[in-house]
Design a protein around this nucleic acid. Sequence first.
DNA 1: TCAATAGTTTAGAATAATTATAATGTAAGG
DNA 2: CCTTACATTATAATTATTCTAAACTATTGA
Lengths: 142, 142
Amino acid sequence: MGKNLDFTEKLRDVGLRPTRQRVKICEVLFNQEKTFHFTISDLVKKISEEKKEKISLATVYNTVHAFKKRGYLQEISINSDKSYFDTNTSAHHHFYDEDTHKLIDCNNEEIDPINIKKNITGKKINSIEVLIRVASDNQYQK
Amino acid sequence: MGKNLDFTEKLRDVGLRPTRQRVKICEVLFNQEKTFHFTISDLVKKISEEKKEKISLATVYNTVHAFKKRGYLQEISINSDKSYFDTNTSAHHHFYDEDTHKLIDCNNEEIDPINIKKNITGKKINSIEVLIRVASDNQYQK
DNA sequence: TCAATAGTTTAGAATAATTATAATGTAAGG
DNA sequence: CCTTACATTATAATTATTCTAAACTATTGA
Ligand SMILES: [Mn+2]
Ligand SMILES: [Mn+2]
Ligand SMILES: [Zn+2]
Ligand SMILES: [Zn+2]
């Protein structure tokens, strides 16, 4: 398994040197069965648990933003006190569970195509994001 | 014109006493020709310009959140360093201009209906928001 | 009319996410 | 190995938002 070689390449591709810390971040981000959603603090905790390593906040922020800029990570628009990122970089949408503060994917086959009739002169569309806020169905819940 | 009476009622309706400061906030929010989008700092500036009055940040935050809770204002989900609010409380969507950091309405007749096939067990949908990020069409722009 | 009270405003402090700084450490190439 | 350009880190700075507690005011009922 040349996984770490892949990560080395990936890091070079985004213009970063493959340092020990950055490779660990890659392992946690990209060496997973499934894609997942995370906040920076989630990620720091995951690295600490899975890799028994504490990487400074600044390095995590910088690396995540470098991957985002090159499209290896996506940032999801929610109004939260924290930023949410996604290792699934395909075009897809999200449910946001307002009880648990977790994101759930809504893939393109689970939603009818979005067709926008209006266009803004001189502007091009960079992305279309649908956010579906959900909460407990319990009628007696606040 | 019984505008201020309306505002008194509106304030009482959200459970707030109609104080001088809150009536001023209402005037700036609801006494406009058109609906508009704003951040808290936009609103403070608008109050200061239109009403020549400085209202403390805490009061503006508290009042805006009270109106939001009762549905007299909407909050728009963008990943921005600031929260955006909307005096247009009908269900509609937004373009976000990444150059100017301004929102533009996308009304329901300007977008095909959103139909979500997936549903989350035990959860009900609270809202569906579409955010269309746009930026300058200039091909030489970064 | 007016005092009592409950609720409000406010300046400033506290909090928390994010970003900047600058000293120390390290990957890469010769 | 050395050099050096780049990276890491602890810590400070920044900024949006929320909290606090003292001064203020709308309301109400005598
Ligand atoms: Mn929350
Ligand atoms: Mn910005
Ligand atoms: Zn996702
Ligand atoms: Zn709007």
